[in-house]
Design a protein around this nucleic acid. Structure first.
Lengths: 186, 186
DNA sequence: AAAGTCTTTTGCCATTTGGCAAAAAAAGAT
DNA sequence: ATCTTTTTTTGCCAAATGGCAAAAGACTTT
């Protein structure tokens, strides 16, 4: 829990009571590798913070191929920005994970009680989104080997722990190509 | 100006006085094609709304190539999310543009006077960022022709009005490739 | 240990894209 | 109108990536 608080405090100040309130309203959970945290078509209105492990967001394109849109590593929030709309993606544990989960009522209690809450959360989410955007953006203009090298750098813990297909679809190449690239690098 | 108000009202309510205050604090400006609205290394602390035309955000990669990160079309805001850090990108008019500009003092006046302002603006920015992210994301997993077709669909007004190089670097391919793709499509 | 399943690697070849330079076309300047 | 400059197209060939299927390897289950 300290990890979460520490993380939040980077973006705004909280007093002891507020920190306690956050702790009270949070639930720690575990996810096993491959388990889904959210599924397309179902409602998804929880907010979670990744304490350990990596999640991945994925969807199916019009050819039925599974595309990994991005990975969410430790010390990041996951939430559905469009809570009123049906969720169209999958959130899956790429490795075993420890999460801190906030359920809707608890989350709105925080929002209603802590004056600064919405501002802080907005900052956090915005910041994270910018990072994702930049990372994703830089993939477009590079060749596959460079993309993979950057991936290894950014997610060393995933490189040999998730199926090749996850990484390949994230990088926008086929499994076989990634396999060949991998071979050439070593 | 009505366009801006109408746009904002999609994300929250404003009364007459508030709308008037926004109008009072806004400045209409024009940009000629190719003109820079912001440059890397300089401060950029204005907030602008695109009334007409298209802007593009670009930067130089480590090979000195100019990369178009994304295009900003009508009815969108442009702002620097990290006002305290040096701006590292360029914002350039891809076509002649009409903008509504808010200067720092005016912007903070809105923020200080209109209770809901920050919330509304956050919603707007977040929403726009998600859209950019999704659009950019989908580029990664498609071949160049598909990317170009999607580009045409999304930015029909740009297709024959900006240099090929802007589009090519946005799509992550070379100019010659784009030229060949274009030829095959027609 | 053996059989079955799933993942990764490999071979073969087609297709796509890149790199470079020259030609052609378009836009701008005098 | 002519000359200049910039942008786009094209040709040629190399390199990268994809598609498909078989082989090899890893992991499970019995």
């Amino acid at each position: 829990m300290e990890k979460l608080i520490e993380y939040i405090l980077q973006f705004g100040n909280l007093n002891k009571q507020q920190i306690e309130l956050i702790s009270k309203n949070a639930t720690e959970t575990q996810l096993h590798k491959d388990e889904y945290f959210a599924e397309a078509g179902k409602t998804f209105n929880r907010v979670a913070f990744v304490l350990e492990g990596v999640l991945r967001i994925c969807y199916y394109n019009n050819k039925g191929e599974e595309i990994t849109k991005y990975f969410i590593e430790e010390n990041n929030f996951v939430a559905n920005p469009y809570q009123n709309e049906t969720f169209t993606e999958y959130i899956q544990a790429a490795t075993d994970c420890k999460l801190i989960v906030f359920y809707p009522q608890q989350w709105s209690q925080l929002s209603n009680t802590i004056l600064e809450w919405d501002t802080i959360i907005n900052k956090i989410f915005h910041h994270a989104l910018m990072k994702k955007m930049d990372r994703r953006s830089s993939l477009v203009s590079e060749d596959a080997t460079t993309r993979y090298l950057k991936f290894i750098e950014k997610f060393p813990s995933l490189t040999n722990r998730v199926p090749l297909s996850y990484i390949a679809s994230y990088l926008g190449i086929t499994q076989s190509s990634l396999s060949r690239i991998r071979k050439n690098i070593v």
